[in-house]
């Protein structure tokens, strides 16, 4: 997919890499949170572009859905807080620290580059083994085969990461998540149009994942985003908190573990899938995982904001009592 080659390297690649590097610098160097966050969101978008350039569309979808979607929402939602004033550091000291950091960074980078330069450009000769095995996996998309068959233990554990992050976050949120009571007309429209569209998109990504890029993670991330939007637009059942939501979250993980046990019972090996029912099992488990991930991500978002929501609600409740002070 060379666009315009320039001394072996595609010019578009160079541009995207340069842009990624610049946004990375901006994201870490801008002192104000707003600027840094936006730079980071753009960094994510450009990364997705880069993933497209390295022939990793699955990763690009995930990056767009998670980096731009849910993680973006998490970061942006935190922006409304007043950025705490940094204790006034001595300017010269700050400069000195930055200089030392830059010097150490340069040394580290040089060392790392030296090591990397020793890597051969030959592709890994073990990779094709995985591609060959796809036939025996029950699905035709290699990455789905890796994620849900060859290395499904990693996937199971990773779902566990998301699930327990949500469990932990839910435990740390102070109050019950409150419904947004007055979303306003624009949001109502958004709720009606965007949310179903996103749910549909999630379903598409899920089903498509068995034969082409897409799958449970991407679908789950989109579903999570849909739930967050639904919540912010005042859709009641999207209030992903409390016992019911947790049940949904852990259900996917438990089902996956159960599948592992079924594999043990059926084939004598944990998590093994018999080719005759592998496709059905993968699709079923992916569906449950999509719901699990989606709800878990929405829980993380709502838990993060719950304290501020509660504080705002308290203030609103206090305001009349104060007699409408100017």
């Amino acid at each position: 997919m060379t666009v315009i080659a320039f001394s072996d390297v595609d010019v578009l690649d160079m541009l995207v890499v340069a842009a990624v590097a610049v946004t990375a610098i901006l994201a870490i160097a801008i002192p104000r949170r707003v600027g840094a966050t936006i730079a980071f969101l753009v960094f994510g978008l450009l990364l997705a572009l880069l993933w497209a350039r390295v022939a990793a569309p699955d990763v690009a979808i995930a990056e767009a859905a998670l980096g731009g979607g849910v993680a973006g929402a998490l970061l942006v939602d935190a922006l409304h807080r007043r950025q705490p004033a940094q204790p006034n550091r001595d300017r010269r000291r700050a400069v000195a620290i930055t200089a030392v950091g830059a010097a150490l960074g340069a040394v580290t980078f040089a060392a790392l580059a030296t090591v990397l330069s020793r890597l051969t450009a030959e592709p890994a000769d073990l990779g094709p083994l995985a591609l060959e095995a796809v036939e025996r996996s029950g699905v035709s998309h290699p990455i789905t085969a890796v994620l849900l068959n060859f290395r499904n233990l990693d996937t199971l554990l990773e779902i566990a990461v998301v699930v327990f992050a949500a469990v932990g976050a839910a435990a740390l949120s102070r109050d019950r998540i409150r419904t947004v009571t007055d979303p306003g007309p624009v949001r109502r429209v958004i709720a009606v149009i965007i949310v179903p569209a996103l749910v549909l998109l999630a379903a598409w990504l899920l089903v498509a994942g068995t034969s082409e890029p897409g799958g449970a993670f991407q679908a789950g991330a989109v579903l999570g985003a849909a739930l967050i939007i639904a919540h912010l637009c005042g859709v009641r059942p999207a209030r992903a908190a409390g016992g019911r939501a947790l049940v949904l979250v852990v259900a996917g993980l438990l089902a996956f573990i159960l599948l592992g046990g079924i594999g043990l019972a059926a084939t004598g090996t944990w998590l093994a899938l018999d080719l005759s029912w592998a496709f059905a099992a993968i699709l079923a488990i992916e569906t449950l995982l999509t719901v699990s991930i989606g709800v878990a991500l929405a829980m993380l978002f709502l838990a993060a904001g719950s304290r501020d929501d509660a504080a705002a609600a308290d203030r609103a409740a206090d305001a009349p009592a104060l007699g409408g002070a100017p």
Binding site: V54, V59, G67, A71, G127, V146, E158, L297, L300, F301
Partner: peptide, 26 residues
């Protein structure tokens, strides 16, 4: 064709980082 294993690994890594980001923001 690119090796699907590292792509799957990165996918996993992205989801893990999203979870980390979530709990960190909380």
């Amino acid at each position: 064709e690119p090796d699907p294993v590292p792509q799957a690994l990165v996918l996993t890594g992205i989801v893990v980082m999203a979870a980390v980001t979530g709990i960190a923001i909380v």
